[in-house]
Design a protein around this nucleic acid. Structure first.
Lengths: 225, 225
DNA sequence: GGGTATCTTTAGAATTCCTTTAGAATTGAT
DNA sequence: ATCAATTCTAAAGGAATTCTAAAGATACCC
């Protein structure tokens, strides 16, 4: 299940993301409407969490556009305690639920589950690319029918690749997604090399093709072409 | 799903009802035992929320009568914080769960879901995974034909694992489900290690396989694969 | 082709996380 | 009120992962 979180308080954004990732959701983050717009143009999401009181634009507008272009997504509005108007407008415009700050992450979680249930998603979430498939609930990776065992970082890396298949991923982008807390280590990316190598080795050992292509000087791309 | 809410504080009654209606339950309300009796005589419910401390009569009596005449219904007891006796009596009398005032509606919601989930397991309320089977009515666990004795925490842990078999459960998720009241203990999860260890030991001693797999850095998973 | 920058691979150090044990604190039962 | 059982805390030791470092390989540019 793929979730887009639109929230300008970066701390809250990160903590929501960490929490939902632990709940086996795949999260993408946007701390401004501009970034949200970019993501919304490219991907489809199952759930969109929208802080309607962001400083840089009109949340109601964004919601309207979401309902138009991402019809399948469930939308949960995050709003400050007093902005009751927004709540009502939001629900009128077709948001599926709302939650007021501050909230417990567990409450957010149960609301997401409820929305998904109402939308009648089947719950399991399996991503596939040719002979490789990843089950995000059991965190298992199957290659040619048999499971391979990955460490956390290897799994995160592979998932990030599969979600972004056929797109160039710079080392910086990878580092940001996998090590979001400490981005300031940016002088060297040696650690990526190591994990990448381990991941490639394990995929190779299981008979999977070498989908992780190196683009010299640019980054990497997960593709069969 | 049809829910009967028995609660004398009318404001609370209404707000529970509104919330659960949004969650797509069908709610009926009773603000006294007399009214509750009337409803219970006519309809069948899936869930009955029972405030056991109502002024106009003996809640324990009503519960007894519910268990007799509405066998299919799951019963969740609402009680004031200090009336521990009622809690215990309630559970002894076959209530499926209890919740103390004040509570978050989302918590009530997840408890309702949990009770429904437990009830839905083929009606018999016996969960099985290979040689392990759990009877949620008698709260007994059978491994290879013979019963093992678990403490409450060990039992809850095992049940949580079996309900979520083949899913990765993070320590945070486990803590939230088993210790939902006090989430602020979140700096360490040592207590999980202890109970997990005890549970594993007992399963092992009874000849059960080691289904509780550790996923280093991620959590745990109950599976035979 | 030589030189430089970038990437791959390996090995081991450092770190983080998990298991286990023992005992203290708490809870419940008699 | 006392005793027994359960739950939680703390700490030692072990295991797995992650990171660092460095040598070798490859691609790019002139």
């Amino acid at each position: 299940m793929k979730i887009l979180i639109i929230e300008d308080e970066v701390e809250l954004l990160i903590s929501i993301s960490n929490f939902l990732t632990r709940e086996t959701f795949i999260c993408e983050l946007a701390e401004s409407y501009a970034k949200a717009d970019d993501k919304l143009a490219i991907y489809e999401y199952d759930i969109i969490l929208l802080d309607i009181t962001l400083p840089d634009g009109n949340g109601i507008e964004l919601l309207r556009s979401i309902k138009k272009h991402q019809k399948k997504a469930g939308v949960i509005i995050i709003s400050a305690k007093n902005s009751l108007d927004d709540k009502i407008k939001g629900l009128d415009l077709g948001a599926d639920d709302y939650i007021t700050k501050p909230f417990y992450l567990s409450e957010l979680n149960s609301r997401i589950k409820a929305v998904l249930r109402r939308k009648q998603f089947d719950g399991t979430s399996i991503l596939t690319y040719n002979e490789i498939s990843v089950n995000t609930e059991s965190r298992t990776v199957i290659i040619k029918g048999s499971a391979i065992i990955l460490t956390k970082k290897e799994y995160d890396l592979l998932l990030f690749f599969i979600i972004n298949k056929n797109r160039v991923l710079t080392k910086e982008a990878i580092a940001e997604h996998l090590w979001e807390d400490s981005i300031d280590m940016a002088d060297t990316y040696d650690f990526i090399y190591t994990h990448l190598n381990n991941l490639r080795k394990k995929i190779r050992a299981a008979g999977g093709a070498d989908y992780i292509k190196t683009l010299y000087g640019m980054g990497y791309k997960f593709t069969d072409q």
